[in-house]
Structures are given as structure tokens and as C-alpha cells.
Design a protein around this nucleic acid. Structure first.
Lengths: 329, 329
DNA sequence: CTGAAAGCGCTAACAT
DNA sequence: ATGTTAGCGCTTTCAG
């Protein structure tokens, strides 16, 4: 009841194990005659090489870990980021012949687990989708010497891919200011993430350059926190006339809070988001937002990781953003 | 520069490999003395067992494949289903000490790849997130005898978990009818999915039971198809006063189309969705929907898979739905 | 170009 | 309770 081994194929084909191995691994130096014999035996037996044995013998593996080390925000966390990133990374990695091992490393225990797993030599590299500042994982991975790329800048010296968060925020705020808005507030992401800090920095710089003051509410990138943040802001400064949400999900929450507060958008209060997720196209009114193509970032990150396998240096990649104006709708 | 082996640990501790193996695997029959010796050596050397060698020796593996065999709908597919399901399944599986290997099997080639991978004995079981009818994967997996659970009913005799799609649709339609709506239309999911067919069946039965006729537009579960479908329906029957979208994403699209067509919701046209995704809470007006908790389904599916490992029979699980009314907002 | 043989690191009988 | 030994299935020198 066990699956056929290379040895069985060899016996069947009447050749040596080595020859079978050579054929299976596509080595050139094999007579067409033997090759055919082997191919037939493989087919007849339905032979599939045993990966464990192979990677034990070669000391190599074609597996790559995708470690998502953010704690799930809420139980039914349906963050489009996760979907887009994991999907794109997987697809790209698979196209390069790699197996994807997905690990959720939200809790300390699972982080240890992930670390052990990588330490065990199970994977050839790691794609880290972790953007919390105090995460110990990037450092640990760097120390182990495993090729690693971080999706979003992280503390340790791990190669990363991100978008121009500071510039993107500036884009958003300048747009608001150019419309004649005078009191531009912001709802931030969780401040232990670099991208949140950068977006906040871009906001602050820009408003202050224009002689305006910052009006800030803390959020955590969820829709619910967008609602909360917006309510807070309206309370703090009822006269505000614009808000820059550090991501679209919070912008969607802000829209709801504004609706509930009876403010018209964009007449009374203009709203700009960040990310350009698909959902931003379906709000009423549709959202002006900063496009930071997550799919492109994910693809770039994967490419970077693959280049690391070939001994590349792993220079960070920073993708530009653009403003997508949709207020007309 | 290579990682320490069990043999190195044995040497360091001055005991045999077997003893080290026993300690590492937590077997009871080891003197505390030896155990301590080993534990110290393990720590000093930073030993982590080599998984390939282990699974080669034991003929077992702790990996489980999560195969998502639906083609990504569109490039920036941000389906909340994917996120919720993959996340929940991973978390549950990891909690049970399993490694998750994620495979996207949208194309025929990748499907072959996935099949080979499973055939190679890399995984102890498969969680299939594939709900397209003509998918050959469930059958292939069943034939290979690998413990498999399907998220959503599938063709072959694979154990599955799903929700009561027919009943859920009936719930939605009865709600609409009870409100006095007379022309209740529907936008379906892709009809090569069982759940789409079931929801359509539930819709048809219910409207016909009430002496009304069906008004159907085909969709594919995307927001864009919701917009399209709604436009189509308005064209086909301008007098319709209600629509049941087979999922929330399409309901969101329908809302937009209605807005663009100048119809008021729910005054002119009532809309009911399906799934109760988080986004449904943020539309204007908020959506009445059929709650089919995907997280629960995913958890149940994983539990089912784990029970299969213990020799359980794998009876299908069908979760009930409930109507969530939110029209007041 | 092909085959024989020696491992890769670990587990599991089997002795002791 | 501990150690010895024989593989698990594959790759990879090394002879031939």
C-alpha cells in the first residue's frame, strides 16, 4: 500500500537507481534508450519522488515560508491586504517552483514556532508580512542567515519593499489643502507600524508647511477604528472640513461616522483614504485615495526574495504612489 | 556552518542517539539524569530536529495542504472569504500542531502541481477550498486516499462543511415578501458552484411558492458583477421592488447601481445580501443579510479534517443560517 | 554513459 | 532504561 520508490522504478526499468535519478532530475547525460525505459516505468508505476528523502539527501528545500506576523485584528478580520498579499506572493512563488508554507505568527508562542520552523532548515527563505515595529522576528531571521524579505519596512536590517508612505500622505494632504480646506485632520494607523508613522509624518509635515495645525486621532487600520476616530475628531474640532485616513478601511468607517453625524461628504467634510482597495470604489461618495498597489508590492517583494537566492544584495525597493481622485461620483 | 545533528547532541551529552531521540520526542522512559544531560546539550548547541530526516524515518508528516482551487476573480481579488477562511483554517491547524502548506490551484497546471504534491506524500491531509463544480481535484484526492475535507460541498464523495444555502436564500426571500414586496429579483453567484445553485434554488422555490415569478441575473460573486446584474435587472423589469443578491459583495455592487439609477433603498427597492461580511455594516443603508459565519465554517471544516486523522467517518456538517436585519440604519 | 556504494539525520526494533 | 543497528528514499561521488 506504499507509494512506489525510485528503487522500484529502477527494477521495473531494468536499470540502476542512479539512472532513474538522472532521468527524473532531467540530467542531460542519459541515453535516449535508458531515458525512455525509465519514463515508461515511471508512468506505469505512477512514481512521484519523495520530497523528504530528496531534501534530506540534497540538503536543500524548495519551500518558502510566508510568515504573517500581525495579530488578527478582531475575529472576523477580513483585511483585503491579507488576501491580496498572500495570494500574490503565493502565485509568484509557485510560478518559481517554490512551495509556500503559510505561518500565522500573531502570538508569542506562534512566533517561537515559526522561528523554530525556520531554524529547522525547513525553508529556503522567508517572506515576512509583518509590519509591527517591535516584532522580534526580523532580527531573529536575519541572525539565522536565512534569506528574508520584509513586506513593509521593519526594524532589523532585512531587505524590504514598501511604498512611499510619507510622500503618499503628503499627496493626500496637499490635495485637500489645494481644495481650500483649512482644517485637515487625520486618523492614523497603529503607531507601532512604520507605515503608520510615515503616513502621520507626511501628514504633519505637509499641514505644518502650510501653516496649519495637526488634528490627530489614533486608529488601527480597521473600519471600526475609523468610525471611532472620526467621532473623536468631530468632538475635538467640530469645525474641521477635511480628514485624511491612513487607509481606506478607516476612511470607510469615517464616512459612516460623518453620515451619522449629519455631515455631507465632500461638501462639509472631504475625505481621502490610502491604499486604493477595491471597496473604495463602492462607497457613496466614492473615495479619493492614494494608490499604493499592494499587488505590485507583493510581487516586487517576491522577486526580491527570489533574487536573494541567486546571491543578489537585497536593496530595498520603494514604490511610488499616486493620487486617485474620485470625488466627482 | 551546518546545523547540529542529533548525533552531535549525543556526543556532547555523552549518551546514545536513541536517548537523545527519546528525550527530544518526550518519551517517558528516560532517567532524569540523562534527560537533563540531553536537554543541556540541546540548548548549548541550539539543536532543532531536521524535519526531512524525521519524516523520512517515520513515514509521517505534520503538514496539511490548504488548496484554494478557485481562480482568482480579477487581478486585485480581495475577497473577504479568502482572508477569513485561510486565516481561520491556518490558526486552527497550527493550534493542532500542523504545518500549513498553501497552494493556489486556479489554473490547470497548478492543479496538476497540487495533485503531484499530495501524491508525493508531502501532506497528511488536505483542506480543499474549492467550490467549483467541475473541479477534478476532489475526485483525484479521494482516489488517492488522502484525508480530505472540502470547504463547501463538492462533487466527489469528499467530506464537507457548508451552510444551509437553500434555507438561507429562502429566509431572505421570505423576508422580502413579508415586507410586501411583489417583484423580487435575484443576482446569482457563478452557477458552477454548488452554493450558487443552492441559493438560486432557494430563491426560486420561495418566490414560486408565493405565486411570484423569478427574475434572475447572473453574477459571479464580485462587486462588479453586482453592479452589472442590477443594471440588467432594472432594464429587464423596471418595476422590481426587491433584490436578493447571492452574496454581500454583489449586494454592495447592486446598491451602487441602484444609487446610480436614482432608486432609493430600501424605499423603492429593498436589497438583501448573503454572508454577513463586515463590509455589509458600512454600506449606506446598511445591508440586511443572511449570516453564514465563514469563520465558524472554516473552524468546523478543520475540526472535521483533524477528526479524519483519528479515523472518524467524516460526516458532512451543515451549519444553519440566520437573517440579520439592518434596514433601520 | 552507467552502476555501485556511501551517506543525508532521524526513528524504531531489537538487544542488552 | 539505554545502546546498537538497520533502514526511510534519494542524491552524488567515484569507478568502470
Amino acid at each position: 500500500m506504499r507509494r512506489p520508490t525510485l528503487e522500484a522504478v529502477a527494477a521495473r526499468a531494468g536499470v540502476s537507481k542512479s539512472s532513474v535519478s538522472r532521468v527524473v532530475n532531467g540530467e542531460a547525460s542519459v541515453t535516449p534508450e535508458i531515458r525512455n525505459l525509465v519514463i515508461r516505468a515511471v508512468r506505469e508505476l505512477g512514481y512521484v519522488p519523495n520530497g523528504a528523502a530528496r531534501s534530506l539527501a540534497t540538503q536543500r528545500t524548495d519551500a518558502v515560508a510566508v510568515i504573517v506576523s500581525d495579530p488578527p485584528r478582531g475575529l472576523v478580520s477580513d483585511d483585503p491586504m491579507f488576501s491580496t498579499v498572500v495570494r500574490t506572493v503565493s502565485r509568484t512563488l509557485e510560478a518559481a517552483g517554490k512551495q509556500v508554507t503559510l505561518m500565522l505568527a500573531g502570538s508569542p508562542e506562534s512566533r517561537v514556532r515559526a522561528e523554530q520552523f525556520v531554524a529547522a532548515g525547513h525553508v529556503a527563505g522567508v517572506m515576512l508580512v509583518s509590519m509591527h515595529g517591535p516584532d522580534p522576528l526580523p532580527g531573529a531571521l536575519a541572525r539565522m542567515g536565512v534569506p528574508t524579505v520584509s513586506f513593509g519596512r521593519s526594524a532589523a536590517g532585512v531587505p524590504y519593499v514598501e511604498n512611499d508612505n510619507v510622500g503618499g500622505a503628503a499627496l493626500a494632504v496637499r490635495h485637500l489643502l489645494a481644495q481650500g480646506r483649512r482644517r485637515v485632520a487625520t486618523i492614523t494607523g497603529p503607531l507601532d507600524m512604520n507605515c503608520s508613522q510615515d503616513r502621520l509624518a507626511g501628514y504633519r509635515e505637509t499641514v505644518s508647511d502650510h501653516g496649519r495645525r495637526s488634528i490627530v486621532a489614533l486608529g488601527d487600520f480597521t473600519r471600526a477604528s475609523g468610525v471611532e476616530g472620526m467621532r473623536q475628531l468631530l468632538e475635538d474640532d467640530p469645525a474641521l472640513d477635511a480628514v485624511f485616513a491612513a487607509n481606506d478601511l478607516m476612511a470607510i468607517g469615517a464616512l459612516r461616522a460623518l453620515r451619522e453625524a449629519g455631515r455631507r461628504v465632500p461638501d462639509d467634510v472631504a475625505v481621502v483614504g490610502f491604499d486604493d482597495i477595491e471597496a473604495a470604489l463602492y462607497t457613496a461618495p466614492t473615495l479619493t485615495t492614494v494608490r499604493s498597489p499592494m499587488g505590485d508590492q507583493a510581487a516586487a517583494a517576491t522577486t526580491l526574495l527570489l533574487s536573494l537566492f541567486d546571491g543578489a544584495s537585497g536593496d530595498p525597493v520603494i514604490l511610488p504612489n499616486e493620487l486617485v481622485i474620485r470625488e466627482s461620483a
